[in-house]
Every structure is written in structure tokens, then in C-alpha cells.
Write a protein that binds this DNA or RNA. Structure first.
Lengths: 215, 215
DNA sequence: TGTACATCAGTGAACGCGCGTTCACTGATGTAC
DNA sequence: TGTACATCAGTGAACGCGCGTTCACTGATGTAC
């Protein structure tokens, strides 16, 4: 089937849309970016794609199905942000120094995404069970690892370079994740919401230091 | 799809209800307990109170006003759970030992409430800004301190007994809170949801230990 | 080569849903005289 | 003491809202012959 590239603008001259699935997904992502998971409204996505509401049912089973696709995209974007931070902070380091930079980058990238793309971040985690989060390759970044796997890898490296005793390694992901995730929530939705960005960055660094020291 | 419970009511014999405000608030709390903030539906609260929907407007300005009242009640309950844990764990200790027990109790009580009263916990924090959370006496427990103040006090005691250098005290609330809050989220909504309770308690203790060690 | 036809993407219209909220009312109650 | 009356808690009916979803359709496209 030949795919025609069409703009996302509603003015369509052909009867067929061309790539409606992609257009709906992108509209959904835009909605999530602006307003979080509840803003991913099927009718609004079709409106933005310049199509009648029920046309969406040719490409998604229902609203939930669209939302899941948006979630996957959000997780992949989170992974990419983390990977970029890792590449940046790790440059020119090796051994224990690199391992430290790596773990910090994982936390920093996570926070960076949470603060810059709040709507997508909330969408990524807006589901009971974080379904499929751990070990779903569809939600990965460039490296093929999803956000959870990037964290795991960073902790493995901590053990490998002797920064973390092997007996404290199990489940350490959840300690680190708790601290950084909780901090993100306090900033996004909570009492730190109105604190200036520079102070937030400083506090974020202390959270990550707490993880390094306490894990 | 969960079936919505329509509540029947003891038929009223008088024209006046008697204490409709309290009845609506309690219905709201029950709804929040069972289903979180979105479940606090004005019409359902009036149904449970055995009253016509618009009767609620004699006692609350609107739905949001009712929700705020429910939120306050939820925060007060959280404070009480924390106070109970503090009383229990602190018994017979003094000095640094008491300070440690106190901080642990703050974290443990917070987690205990989050896991036992998930709906109320989510309701308590279901608002931009956690409005009024820090320093609002209406949301306090028996001691007159709200949850945030209980944490602050515990950290002050850490400084007082020499467990924490004074220069690291500022904003330490947010480090501790991040870790424990994030952990609660991972358990309630996240990948730890299906982990057995005993393991959760063990992990929770490690989170709190991480805070103690890393703060 | 042209053309008949099957396929299926998008249309048009309509649904039921439960919600929050507004309006004009009714009737029990407490109080002033 | 009784009674008129103001107050205001709760009633009854109705609204508009936007949503997700279903149904029967139309018409552009690719392919078999």
C-alpha cells in the first residue's frame, strides 16, 4: 500500500487521509504533552486529524488503545532523554568515575524529562501497574533499552566497579527510582511546584546524591 | 468495568435532614476511600445521603468545595496514622535512639496509610500544588501538627541529637519525602503493585534506611 | 488493454451516559409580638 | 398563651455538556480477468 505524506492540517483534498493512524497518534501525543493522560480524548484527536470521530475506529480499537500507543511513545521519549544525558555526562570518563556519572545521568535525565515534558511524563505512568514498563522493547530508546533497563544497567555498573556491594544490589532499582520519581511528583504536582528552577535543580542533585550515598 | 454502587438510604421521616453537611462529607470520604478523588461525585454523595442532587448546594459551593473538605479529612487521617506510629515506635526510647525511631515512624506511618487507605491517600494529594498542605492546621492530627510538620519535627530532632549536621538540615524534608512518596507511588500504581506485602515492607524499610543514611 | 468488482477507509447521523449546575417551588421550623 | 411570618433546607424539573461508541452508508483504490 502506497503511503502518501499528508500534512496534519485538517484541509484534506482527497477522500482517503493517507496515514490516519499516524496522524491520530501524533495528535494524541500532542494532547498528552499539553494536558496529560486525561487530555487524550478520541474525538479531539480526530478533530485535529480533520476526520470524523468514528474514523478512529479503523485504526484503534477504542480510546484506551489510542492511549496505550501514546504511552509507549512517551516512554520511548523518556528513554531517549535519559540516553542523551548519559552520553553527555559520561563523555571522557571511565571506571568508577564513569559509573557514577552514568547513574547520575539516569536520574538527571529522568528529572529533566519530567520537568520539561510534564504532560508526557504523567501520561507515561498514568496506568495501574505501569503495564509493560519493565522489559518492553517497544518502549525503548535508541539503545534498545527502556527507562527501567537503563537504570538497571547503571546499577550493575556500580556493582561492577565496586561502588556497590553485590549483596545490596537486588531491588536497588526501586530505591533509586522511588527517590527520583517522588521528587518529580513533588515538583510537578506538589509543594515544590512554585520553587524556582535553579533551586529545583540543586535539590534534585541532592536527591540523587542521597541515592548514591544511601543505596 | 467496575459497576458503580448506587447507595440506598435509610428513608428519612422528617423533611429536614438534620445534619446534611456531615452526611455529604462522610459520603464523600467513603467515595474517596473506595475510588480516589475522581470517585468523589456530587450526585452520588447526595444519593447516599438520601437527598436530591441540588440539596448539596445548601452546604457546599460546588463539587470542588466538597472535594476540598474530603481532602482535609484525608490529610487529618494521615496525620493520625503517623502519630500512632510515632507513639508506638518511640516508646521507652530517648535521645538519638528516640530521634531515629521518630523519623522511621514518620516514614512507616506514611507508607502504612498509603497502602491501607490508598483511595484516601490519592485524594489527599490529588491537586495541583498540594494546596494548603504545608502549615494548614485544619489538616492536622491529635498533636495539632499536619503530616509535613510531623516530618519537619522529626528532622529537627535529628539535628538536635547530633545525627544530622545543621548545614544539611535545610530542605531535608523534601529529600525524605521524595523517597517515601515515590515508593508509595510505585507500590500503589506501579510495578511493585503485585509484590507480596511482606516484601513491600522489607523494601519500604530499605527506602527509609536510605533516607537516614543519605540525608 | 480496459473494465468489473471486492475491499475497506472515511462519512453522516444518532445513541445513551452521568455529570454539574440552575431555576422556581414547598413546607418545617424558630421567633417576635 | 397563641399566632403570623420570615427564614432557609430540601424538592422537582430541567439544562447543556462532551464524551465514547454503534449503525448503515459512500466512494476511492487496487486487482483479477
Amino acid at each position: 500500500m502506497t503511503k502518501k505524506l499528508r500534512s496534519k492540517t485538517p484541509a484534506r483534498t482527497t477522500y482517503r487521509h493517507g496515514d490516519l493512524r499516524r496522524a491520530l497518534l501524533e495528535a494524541g501525543i500532542a494532547l498528552a504533552r499539553a494536558g496529560g493522560p486525561d487530555a487524550v480524548v478520541l474525538r479531539e484527536a480526530t478533530r485535529r486529524a480533520g476526520v470524523v470521530p468514528n474514523a478512529a475506529y479503523r485504526h484503534f480499537a477504542n480510546r484506551q488503545d489510542l492511549l496505550e500507543a501514546v504511552r509507549s511513545a512517551a516512554l520511548a521519549e523518556l528513554a531517549k532523554t535519559m540516553e542523551a544525558e548519559i552520553a553527555r555526562m559520561r563523555r571522557g570518563k571511565s571506571g568508577a568515575e564513569a559509573a557514577r556519572a552514568n547513574l547520575r545521568a539516569v536520574g538527571t535525565g529522568y528529572l529533566r524529562f519530567a520537568l520539561a515534558e510534564t504532560g508526557l511524563f504523567r501520561t507515561a505512568f498514568a496506568t495501574p501497574e505501569f503495564r509493560g514498563f519493565i522489559g518492553d522493547p517497544a518502549r525503548a530508546g535508541e539503545s534498545g533499552l527502556n527507562p527501567f533497563q537503563l537504570l538497571s544497567k547503571a546499577l550493575d555498573e556500580f556493582v561492577g566497579t565496586g561502588l556497590l556491594p553485590a549483596n545490596r544490589r537486588p531491588a536497588a532499582e526501586f530505591l533509586a527510582w522511588s527517590a527520583v520519581h517522588g521528587f518529580a511528583m513533588l515538583v510537578i504536582d506538589g509543594p515544590l511546584h512554585t520553587v524556582p528552577r535553579a533551586d529545583i535543580d540543586g535539590l534534585g542533585a541532592r536527591v540523587i546524591a542521597m541515592v548514591e550515598a544511601g543505596v
